[in-house]
Design a protein around this nucleic acid. Sequence first.
DNA 1: GCATGATCATGC
DNA 2: GCATGATCATGC
Length: 460
Amino acid sequence: MNYNQYDINSIIEYSKKLVGNTLRDLCGNDINTQHYKGKGNFGQFLEKYYFQYEPNSLSEPDFNEVGLELKTSPLKQINNGDYRSKERLVLNIINYFEVVNQKFENSSFYKKNAHLLLIFYLHQFDIDVLDLVIKIVGEWKFAETDLEIIKQDWNLITNKIKSGKAHELSEGDTFYLGAATKGDKGGNLRGQPFSKILAKQRAYSFKQGYLNHIIATLNNNSTINYGKLITSKEQLKNKTIQEIVIDRFKPYIDKTIEEITEDFNKNLNKNAKGFYATLTKLILGVSLDKEIEEFDKAEIKIKTIRLKSNNLPKEDMSFPSFSFLDIINEEWDDSSFKEILETKYLFVFFKYDENNILRLNKVKFWNMKQTDILEAKKVWDKVKNIIKNGEIVHEVVDGIRHTNFPNKRFNRIAHVRPHAQNAADTFPLPVKDKITNQSEYTKQSFWLNNSYIRDIIYSE
DNA sequence: GCATGATCATGC
DNA sequence: GCATGATCATGC
């Protein structure tokens, strides 16, 4: 072996030699002579041929002698050249029966993952895993405040299992540490200790946002300017991060927009569309030129909503437009719409009072529950079929195209409608539309129905 | 007053 | 010039 398994520095040093290389560069000869079939998993090859131990699924860390766990993960490169995580990082499986008897400090999660050796390679479509280039290698221990938030996440997951709700776990439940489904296509059901309902097999995972934070830290090239909400772990002693955020809004509840902006002594353009988002940042105490670090790491999205006096949001809620070409090739489990639905949101509600003046009304964290996600899936299924069959347009009246896309009556939760610069702002279609004979169509997005937001999100 | 098609404002 | 969050406009 080319490293000393009892000496952590020796392992790290040996790992760093991977940077800039591929598996074929470093151990191609070994692999070629050992029944290599051209397929396989990057992590397993790395363990077997570079570190020369057999991949295992033990509950101990991979380098058990020094308590170091090896993890590999793919990167993607964004336009400015920075690296981002391609996906979440899946860690050990959650054993529903064992975890309910554990404390965080002696949990299987913490025992295995307290100290990580992370190896990131640049993902490339259709390239042999042996030829993928390793870009970033480094060890990772959790910063104090991160660990405290991860502990809160772990407790939330554990408590849900303790209340017999393992089948209701969702990635959106938590901040940095998620409970990601693992195994084939939603199958792989398991028993749970406090309910007879079978639950999906799930594993602990780091949210993509948290991985991006790790990547930027290891790579030492973060171009993002961050402001923190939590500066010491003492803040998290008696309150969850959610409670801390909600508390910051409390002094401003029922205040008008003018009253709030006066407090901050800022001259804001009230007509700017980002006005409410700006106001939110001010209230949270994050300067306007900075991103909220904890929200980025937890992939939390802020949505501001204006309510009419009857609590109905003035508008439905839009999401980024989707690609017609992509959606017909997606499976539900890796679809962009499912990702949207599994996201955690901070909703900031402003409401018109009896004099038609907007006042801050309510703030809440929210993520969609599993049963609703499945109900919203029907919208996605229908959209996919319509595009596949070239049946977007139903009829054209006075030059206005009426579509077959699922409308508000079709589904309680979501619908599909245009989301573009204008009607001429289009995406290509995989199949020509039968009525218009066009091979492109105005960009569309999924929208959450305002009635759903009122009934579920606002009132609960 | 709602549903649906369409578009705006900002920041990168 | 586009992605994104948000809002407008019109017909029923």
